[in-house]
Structure formats: structure tokens, C-alpha cells
Amino acid sequence: MKTDDAERPNMAVSIGRLMLKNPVITASGTFGYGEEFAPYLDLGRLGGMVLKGISEKPRPGNPPPRIAETPSGLLNAIGLENVGVDAFVTEKAPFLETLDTTVIANIFGESADEYARVAGKLTDVKCVDALEVNISCPNVNRGGMDFGADPEQAAEVTRAVKEATDLPVIVKLTPNVTDITAVARRVEAAGADALSLINTIRGMSVDVYTARPRLANVTGGLSGPAIRPVAVLMVWETVQAVSIPVIGMGGIMNARDALEFLIAGARAVEVGTANFVNPAAVLDIIDGIERHLGDAGVDDINDIIGTLDCRRK
């Protein structure tokens, strides 16, 4: 039962100049271009939606099998299958323009120039409110994680994208590094407006009866609850290392999981694998966070963010 609006806690957060009606965003590659989920939930309730990664030219993706379930996790090697930026603009954008939801386009390239060209094209698309720069995909031969694992190249891509667009730029970081804060600091210095983390952790699984890898690509990226503690740690470390907003993600299945990231300092969260288990999972998460605030007597979500208390008892 809903109470008067006046009694409901404020759920709105800001990521720099990007305003979100609540801190729950659907993660790239797990929510298509929104349209696939329209029969299952009111997309207007989302804090935001990050689209499936878009490259300059269409990409066919990797051969199957592309996914395998592992303990509390999902191993994938989709290979950034997408229609390319031009087909996105003509085929996918018109639907997104009908929505009252913050839309963040996720972009991918094999060179800094390609990132910049895709960013430039998307800047003129009305429905796109911000860009998330994927420098962290572990499942492609060129680009992706190559950029994100090297602080210098990560900074170069960030600079190129910033020069090509006036949209807010969120850079998505890979956990497959020794020190994520080193990359985070360089990307911040290069002009990023925000960071999102973590992308998937590299992984592999073997079918012992056939002695073959369970993915055709051999290696993949792990998501789901199995990676959540790693993600919470990296978000917490990164929040302390930079002053730009951080969006946290990694294995969030319910409101309690999302609150872990918010308390650790994330200004918003992205929900990925959970969308596969239940297409309306994000609504349960949004409602659950609001309920938690009510139960705790907190009237603004921003009063929860970064409240982690590490003092010894």
C-alpha cells in the first residue's frame, strides 16, 4: 500500500549532472534495448537503463555455446553482438524516445578513434542521456579489456570520448587488474564524469566428460552473486580513491544486495544477471530499497550512501 508522497522517502540521486529518479539502473547486455522487457514492467519506473553495447559496425558475436551456469554465477562470452550504431539509431532509438526513463548508451570500439566516432553519432540521438564507455569486455579479441587493463590506454579512450561528446561520460572499469584504483584515478584525470564497476571477472569452466571448455570461446566473463563480494570491495576502494561518482554493480539480486553497494559509497547501482532470472527483478529491488528506508526512518536515499562504518566496536 502506498502512502502519501510527502511521507515517502526521496529516492532520486544524481550522477554529476545526470539526474536519476532512483538509484537502480539496468546493466548493459542484460536488458537489450529495453523493448524486450516492455511486456514485463513499466520501464518508466527505472532509475535508468544502460543499453546493450554499441559498436561502429555490426558485430555477429561469438559462436555458441556462449553461456554456462557455474556456482551462483553465469559465465558468458557473447562477444558484443550488436546491430551497429547506424541501425541502432534507425531501428532501436525510436522506441526509446517514447519512454520517460534515463537512457545510457554503452559504447565499444577497437580503437580510441572508433570510440570517439560512436560517441559522436550517439550525441545527436535524442533519447540518449549519457554514455557508458565499455573498456572492460573480456570476450573480444581487440579493444575492450585491453584498454581498461592499462591506465594509460584507459585515459586515452576517455579523452577521445570526452572530446567527441558533451553528454555525461561514465567509464566502465574491469576488475581484471591488480589495482583498480590506479585505472580509476587516470580515467578521472582524463575527464570522466563518473565510473561504473565492475564488469565481469574472467573465468573458465570445463566439461570433464568431454574434456572440452563449456564455452566455445574457451574463456568468458563471470557475473552473478558469486562475484558480489569482489565487486563491493572494488567499489569501496574506488570511492575512496576518486572524487567523481561511482556506480556499483556485480551480482545484485535483491534490495539488500543493492544497499551493500550504496552503503559502501556507490551513488547508484546497476542490476544485470538478476534481469535474466526475473524480468521484473529491478522493480522488486526499487521497492525493497524504499521499504528499507521507511523501516530505518531515513527520508532520503542520499543519507544512506557512503555511510559505511568501519570503526572497531
Binding site: 547486455g29 542484460t30 559462436p63 555458441p64 556462449r66 553461456i67 558468458n76 557473447i78 535474466f276 524480468p279
Partner: peptide
């Protein structure tokens, strides 16, 4: 038949050539 994560066209896991 192919392994699927979502069943509704979003994950692109169940590709067939």
C-alpha cells in the same frame, strides 16, 4: 535447443547459426 539465460531475447546467449 541451446543454453539460455533469459528466454526473452535479451542475453543473446542462445545463438544458433
Amino acid at each position: 535447443e541451446e543454453r539460455m539465460a533469459c528466454g526473452i531475447g535479451a542475453c543473446l546467449g542462445c545463438a544458433v547459426r
